[in-house]
């Protein structure tokens, strides 16, 4: 160990951090860079040999055409944002009481229900979707935001319950006891004392749920038929992956356009998120 004691060699320590950081950032940043670079190229240059690091015929036309496409890109982006935000809200609201119950209320069958909830993520969605489609038809949920939000909740919820349970576990049970002595019931404890203490965690879980809906293809595709109801993944496939060719430039421009605002929100919320995530996961 002695030989690697970097504390005695601050220069070596800095160099090592630098190299690790540079390698990891290169790995993470490289495809992103390539996507942005390609989004500025006309379609004809997508297969240029050798590839152009910096577009020779740089153009923002790909971006312009996405932003003009009211029936397409803008609709998909709007649907994507709406459905994802709704899903985040529903998921958070529903997982609060469940997470609290797991963390603070002793009840019979806890372990079994925990396993049941996790198990809901272990079956391939594509097998379920057929049966879900029939159910939705009967319930008139096809082509509705409600239907999409419910379907997305099916995979964001188990995760959210697990995380929120972790947040509540960071609150000592003595707090509950004290409140009960004051005459509060469980619901009052949850709403007045529990929730305010885990707000950062709720934000974090909300963001996770948001991204889960944002990225979902199979439910979004199968449970909607109208073009006006499509979210981003199926909408993007519709627009950029034709029967005969890929529209690389447009595809990457569209991706950059929907990625930017989300990343900006992330950066803005970073502080809360970081403090929120940890509490949930450390205790698990």
């Amino acid at each position: 160990m002695r030989r690697f004691d970097l504390d005695r060699r601050p220069a070596a320590k800095r160099a090592l951090t630098g190299i690790v950081l540079a390698l990891c950032l290169a790995f993470v940043f490289f495809p992103t860079f390539w996507m942005v670079s390609s989004s500025l190229k006309p379609n004809r240059d997508a297969f240029a040999v050798p590839p152009e690091w910096v577009p020779r015929r740089a153009t923002v036309e790909n971006y312009r055409s996405q932003l003009r496409d009211r029936g397409g890109f803008l609709t998909y982006a709007k649907n994507g944002f709406l459905v994802s935000i709704e899903n985040a809200i529903v998921t958070v609201l529903v997982s609060i009481p469940a997470g609290y119950a797991f963390a603070h209320i002793p009840f019979r069958g806890k372990r079994a229900i925990t396993v049941l909830i996790i198990a809901s993520q272990m079956f391939p969605g594509v097998v379920i979707v057929i049966s879900l489609f029939s159910l939705y038809r009967v319930l008139h949920l096809l082509d509705t935001y409600t239907g999409l939000v419910l379907a997305f909740t099916s995979f964001s919820l188990p995760f959210a319950v697990w995380m929120i349970r972790g947040f509540f576990e960071t609150i000592p049970t003595e707090v509950d006891e004290a409140a009960r002595v004051d005459g509060c019931n469980r619901l009052q404890i949850l709403v007045r004392i529990g929730v305010p203490l885990v707000v950062p965690g709720l934000l974090a879980v909300g963001l996770f749920s948001f991204l889960n809906s944002w990225n979902n293809l199979i439910f979004a595709l199968s449970l909607t038929t109208e073009q006006g109801m499509r979210t981003i993944p199926p909408g993007f496939l519709l627009t950029y992956v034709g029967e005969f060719q890929y529209k690389w430039g447009d595809m990457f421009a569209g991706s950059v356009l929907v990625t930017l605002p989300t990343v900006a929100i992330f950066i803005a919320l970073q502080r809360f998120l970081v403090s929120g995530l940890v509490a949930g996961a450390v205790k698990g």
């Binding site: 979707v129 057929i130 489609f133 029939s134 939705y136 038809r137 096809l142 595709l221 199968s222 038929t225 109208e226 073009q227 199926p234 496939l237 519709l238 992956v241 034709g242 029967e243």
Partner: peptide, 25 residues
Amino acid sequence: VDNVAIPFDEMHQQLLIETAGGNPP
């Protein structure tokens, strides 16, 4: 006529799902 647009690569699967679900175009 309701125009139902489906990406080419997903068309086959979607027709099967809608048919199996009892609601084919």
